[in-house]
Design a protein around this nucleic acid. Structure first.
Lengths: 329, 329
DNA sequence: ACCCCTTACTAAAACCTCTTACTAAAACCT
DNA sequence: AGGTTTTAGTAAGAGGTTTTAGTAAGGGGT
């Protein structure tokens, strides 16, 4: 900066004022032009580090995730977060912990040393977690996960509403016996979606028949097996709600083997909106999307807002899972 | 740091020496313990910013990508890069540009202001790019893309070898007529794989028959259409090499509709190893994996190495695409 | 014509936190 | 006493921001 000041024939103060557009510094347009020209000529680039040291604003947000690659979701979350950060003039620093607590703790440590303005702890599937206590030193938020004791703010998908949406997509087409191949029991996603399924039935005055509900493993294989199971019954469903799109992929196989047409004979709806699968399947799969992008966005917006306005009570924010209608319903 | 020094009854110098384990500073174990205890008591966390200002080592690498979410690959690349960075004690700062040049330039600017030690420019599909000139201010490398004029170091998949590997997987099973549903012509991936396909044939003394080679669009739909086309011929192939796994998904459909078994009647091999598809397909798809993880890793290792040992001639490094055998061959 | 006070600019200096020469004091030998 | 080691402290930056202080020009009053 000194060089620029010298070249422009002013003091570093003036350079700082001009380059940062400080209000009320009353520097005449003339001088401003000279300073800016000098900066350009010297290809001057301010040193964000030095600025941070003085201002204590790193304009950086830490993003700690358990698994970045195992699902395509991770990309959506990061993209949403990154977009929101960019819009606010922030940068995102990312660490993938591989679900290793030691790495997670040192990652948080490194981020705090760099004075990040907030930390996001993201999980790649919806579950309970316990982030390092150190993260409380700055605004922090859990993404696609939550603390059992509610002591951390978090943002998660509205699984209940999602399950209800999926089921209603089928009910509204006149189906009254809807099979449900859920995920492994115990997962928040499985519990929530089942509840949503029940509520949808209830709202239409339809009975809940637990012979229509199975827990699979979220794979095409188990979808194939359980669809076969469902269709073997004497009063088989006319529609199947699958706990995820991979399951639906297996269900398609099973139905096709039986010569059943989708959606004419059996309608199918998936969950997750894994485009790679849902779009490519024939017929294209109607499904419910997880709001990964929105959660990423919400998390950084929350952090920025909280950094600006201080502490608020931790809360669990849920985001709706929109229905994506294609050809299978 | 001053607080710690005061509490331990020493000077800031001593604290710095102890906390950084400076060699040859000759501080007795006694004092060291006292300093460390004070630091712990005050929950002292060094300010990485101040250190950086003095040492000029940010221990941060910038990662600029055109699209983070549109393919599951992005996650692998980032994961590989992040792992390598972590092992070297570096952090990764990521920006998604949405292929917008303006954003890319300001992203580079922001990173340079933060004094990153290197910049990676990643593309989500293999292609030629032209990164902002400013990136040359620090070590920089292109990932899954390259500069037309070769003026930037880069790391890309070895498409030729990959195409050859895929073809040979089929030839080695005795197939002599291998159909090839390639990607859109013009893509480096399509050109390279076609070359590899030809070389594999050549190596076995088999003729190249261009009626066996079609360009699709990399979708299940076009795979379906072109497989039908291929099988309609009077001398249809006994094996099909697909430019990607989505194409293979459509090929499966077409073959199954004709009552052809995989791999008994027609063997199929894909490309990309999109696990979501390849593993879930029945039979599971044999395919060739793109080395995303390795490219990510290579890129940061190259950067760190170059930062340490100075400029070297830009080179294009290729990484092999390993064959992933499953059930379709 | 002189003085004083604004206003409009610009500069000096303190500060942010840590690293690292360089220096100094103490302790330990001959 | 004089010279080495050990051990520890001082102070100068690193590159900005921001507070405080100043100078010069212009304007009004007498």
């Amino acid at each position: 900066m000194g060089d620029v000041a010298r070249l422009a024939g002013v003091s570093p103060t003036t350079v700082s004022f001009v380059l940062n557009d400080v209000a009320g510094s009353g520097i005449p347009e003339n001088t401003r032009r000279r300073v800016r020209a000098s900066a350009r000529e010297l290809r001057y680039r301010p040193n964000a580090t030095a600025r941070l040291l003085r201002t204590d604003r790193s304009h950086t947000i830490g993003f700690v995730t358990d698994e970045i690659a195992s699902t395509p979701f991770a990309g959506d979350v990061i993209k949403g977060a990154q977009e929101a950060a960019w819009e606010a003039g922030k940068l995102l620093t990312i660490v993938n912990t591989g679900d290793n607590q030691g790495i997670e703790e040192s990652a948080v440590g490194m981020m705090l040393e760099r004075r990040v303005e907030g930390i996001i702890h993201a999980a790649m599937y919806h579950r309970a977690v316990e982030p390092p206590a150190d993260s409380r030193e700055v605004p922090a938020v859990l993404l696609n996960c939550y603390a059992e004791d509610g002591s951390w703010p978090s943002v998660v998908p509205d699984e209940v509403a999602g399950g209800r949406t999926a089921t209603e997509a089928l009910l509204s087409r006149g189906h009254e016996r809807v099979g449900f191949i859920n995920l492994r029991p115990g997962l928040p996603a499985a519990a929530g979606r089942l509840q949503g399924y029940k509520r949808a039935l209830e709202a239409r005055g339809l009975p809940f028949d637990d012979s229509l509900v199975w827990n699979g493993e979220g794979t095409a294989k188990s979808g194939y097996r359980l669809a076969a199971e469902l269709m073997r019954a004497q009063d088989p469903p006319t529609a199947i709600f699958c706990g995820n799109d991979q399951t639906a992929m297996g269900v398609y196989e099973a139905l096709k083997e039986r010569g059943l047409r989708i959606p004419e004979d059996v309608a199918v709806v998936g969950f997750d909106n894994q485009e790679l699968i849902a779009v490519q399947l024939r017929p294209a799969l109607s499904t419910v999307a997880l709001p990964h992008h929105e959660m990423g966005r919400w998390a950084v917006e929350y952090l920025i807002d909280r950094a600006a306005h201080g502490e608020t009570a931790p809360r669990r924010h849920t985001i709706a899972c929109p229905y994506v209608g294609r050809e299978s319903v």
